[in-house]
Computed example of a mutant assay.
Amino acid sequence: MIELKTPAEIERMHVTGRFVGEVLTEVGRLADVGVNLLDLERHVRGMIKERGAVSCYWDYSPSFGRGPFRNVICLSVNDAVLHGLPHDYVLRDGDVLKADIAVTIDGWAADSARTVIVGTPAADDLRIIRAAEEALEAAIEEAHPGRRVGDISEAISSVARGYGYPVNGEFGGHGIGRTMHEGPHISNTGRSGRGLVLRPGLVLALEPWFAKSTDRIVYDPDGWTIRSADGSRAAHAEHTVAITEDGPIVLTRRESEN
């Protein structure tokens, strides 16, 4: 189902988006050598409870997961690319951590993800993070009325091709509003000029993610954590973006990005 939001509803989603950005800023600050993923999870739970927000992940039971999901944030390390189940793992120097979170406040959702390096960064890890972030900004630039979903998909895959990274088309962006997942699906690969015409009031979670040397994925025994099939490291970037007559508004932009 595709539901267009009013300006007032978009502003309510912006309230949620600001909080999501605050959480990811805090996760980036806390992610350090020696920190356990379970401690990060507990800290985020506390932030959500204090704000009076509701996790979109808790009890989430999609067809691809071994549900229900009983955590409030996805934490994926190194070759884990998406839906990382927080577990008893202590972060090490050089780890690449992806943090992905979605919550509702007063019934309106926002969804965002970022990738950070723990401790000492490696040049090729910085490169793939930069590619994911550039692909996200390129996608946002296409989020104008009259353009099409395929224009967003092509923008993402074009950045990936420029960096030499393959692109998986199975998991990508999506509409968002009163629930975390609404229509349409936004593939990370596609052709410009194709697909749904973008209209004011449409709110999308755009989320490019790339692994360094494969577009194939495998699942961990936990049924949730998705890894690159060849073990190569990955990066993920995501923002919730509203399409308006005046252009895209990034609802989950973090203060460090302004």
Results as ranks from 00 to 15, higher is better:
residue 13 M to S: 03
residue 14 H to M: 11
residue 16 T to Q: 10
residue 17 G to I: 00
residue 26 E to R: 11
residue 29 R to Q: 14
residue 34 G to D: 05
residue 34 G to P: 03
residue 36 N to W: 00
residue 40 L to G: 01
residue 41 E to Q: 15
residue 42 R to D: 10
residue 50 E to G: 03
residue 51 R to T: 05
residue 51 R to G: 06
residue 52 G to E: 07
residue 54 V to D: 14
residue 73 I to N: 02
residue 78 N to S: 04
residue 78 N to Y: 02
residue 85 L to Y: 14
residue 97 L to G: 05
residue 97 L to K: 03
residue 103 V to K: 08
residue 104 T to W: 05
residue 123 A to T: 12
residue 123 A to L: 12
residue 124 D to C: 09
residue 125 D to W: 12
residue 135 A to V: 04
residue 136 L to S: 02
residue 137 E to N: 11
residue 137 E to G: 03
residue 143 A to G: 08
residue 143 A to W: 09
residue 144 H to D: 02
residue 150 G to L: 02
residue 160 A to F: 00
residue 164 G to S: 06
residue 164 G to T: 03
residue 164 G to P: 05
residue 168 N to H: 13
residue 169 G to V: 07
residue 169 G to S: 15
residue 170 E to N: 14
residue 174 H to D: 08
residue 175 G to F: 05
residue 175 G to Y: 07
residue 177 G to Q: 03
residue 180 M to Y: 07
residue 183 G to W: 07
residue 186 I to W: 05
residue 189 T to P: 08
residue 189 T to Q: 14
residue 190 G to Y: 02
residue 192 S to V: 07
residue 198 L to R: 08
residue 198 L to P: 08
residue 198 L to I: 07
residue 208 P to Q: 00
residue 211 A to W: 00
residue 212 K to I: 11
residue 215 D to G: 12
residue 217 I to A: 12
residue 217 I to H: 10
residue 220 D to G: 10
residue 221 P to M: 08
residue 225 T to S: 07
residue 227 R to L: 11
residue 228 S to W: 04
residue 233 R to H: 15
residue 236 H to C: 08
residue 237 A to T: 01
residue 237 A to K: 01
residue 242 A to Q: 05
residue 249 I to Y: 09
residue 251 L to N: 02
residue 253 R to H: 05
residue 256 S to T: 13
residue 258 N to E: 13
